[in-house]
């Protein structure tokens, strides 16, 4: 059974006012348990709205969202339980840090869940480990951390709730390439160990290319496609028309194909590109 199912969901901001804006229009999809799904789209494509609907921060104007087959808005008073199960890491999450120590900040979520001290402690340490935060940093004020460490601490704060579905909205925005790479591999490792569902929103396809099983492409508030990563990247032309940037190596393959050279267009990383060219050369 799918862990998350969206059924014809639409969302309108400030309905009935001059600022009325349709952000999502009749979107349906299903996400299987344990999947790693990338969500890409242009700014304003509705991807950020979509993820806020999935964990009940926004309520759809129309349509239903099911978590394990249950409508999440069946009991609006219990929506907090949905938020614990569908963890959400916002863009620039370091701006939410507020406690005296990193440890206390990470335990904010588990505390709100009403977990006892022992369980909270276990989860905080586990979450710090997952995100690569060093043990000694737990007793430091979050405001004394470096930019990258703050980001990790904030993500740990959500992971500590041990959600069944983890959603990350642009987790690497503003980081330098080293930080970006390290964080992405940490997320991939977390997914491998915890075996839960992870959804990663990004407009940088390079981020998603190497780790996502499937990719949901959003455009103008609608689902443009939802397919395996390789299949989505094979349609590089269409993605570029949507204003999305494909990785440079994918673009090189696309351009080679246009020149009549038969290479696989679904190349996502330099490694794959290198092997593909070698294959081509040895096949001749």
């Amino acid at each position: 059974m799918s862990v998350i199912k969206a059924e014809n969901i639409s969302f309108v901001y400030s309905p009935g006012t001059a600022f009325e804006k349709k952000a999502l229009d009749n979107v349906s999809f299903e996400i299987e348990e344990g999947e790693f799904v990338g969500i890409i789209g242009h700014t304003g494509s509705g991807k950020s709205t979509l993820v806020q609907l999935l964990n009940g921060l926004l309520r759809p104007s129309a349509g239903k969202i099911y978590l394990d087959g249950k409508d999440i808005w069946e009991k609006p008073k219990k929506i907090r339980n949905v938020r614990f199960r569908v963890g959400m890491v916002f863009q620039y999450p370091e701006y939410q840090l507020f406690e005296e120590t990193v440890y206390k900040d990470i335990s904010f979520g588990p505390g709100n869940m009403g977990l006892d001290e022992e369980e909270t402690d276990k989860r905080v340490r586990k979450a710090a480990e997952f995100t690569g935060l060093k043990e000694e940093l737990l007793e430091v004020s979050p405001f004394d951390l470096s930019g990258g460490e703050k980001r990790r601490a904030a993500i740990a704060g959500v992971i500590a709730m041990d959600p069944d579905v983890l959603i990350l909205d642009e987790p690497t925005a503003g980081l330098d390439p080293l930080g970006r790479e390290a964080l992405l591999s940490q997320i991939a490792d977390y997914h491998k160990v915890r075996k839960n569902t992870v959804m990663l929103v990004s407009h940088s396809m390079e981020d998603i290319a190497a780790i996502a099983d499937r990719i949901l492409v959003m455009a103008k508030g609608k689902k443009y496609m939802l397919d395996s990563t390789a299949n989505v990247f094979a349609k590089g032309d269409e993605l570029e028309k949507l204003g999305l940037k494909v990785p440079q190596v994918t673009k090189i393959m696309m351009m080679l194909r246009k020149k009549g050279i038969n290479v696989d267009p679904a190349v996502l990383t330099v490694d794959q590109g290198f092997n593909e060219i070698l294959n081509c050369l040895s096949a001749r």
């Binding site: 990785p247 440079q248 190596v249 090189i252 330099v270 590109g273 290198f274 060219i277 070698l278």
Partner: peptide, 11 residues
């Protein structure tokens, strides 16, 4: 380095 640069370098 840019992906294009790296690809050609490795080849």
């Amino acid at each position: 380095v840019p992906q294009a640069t790296e690809l050609i370098y490795r080849l």
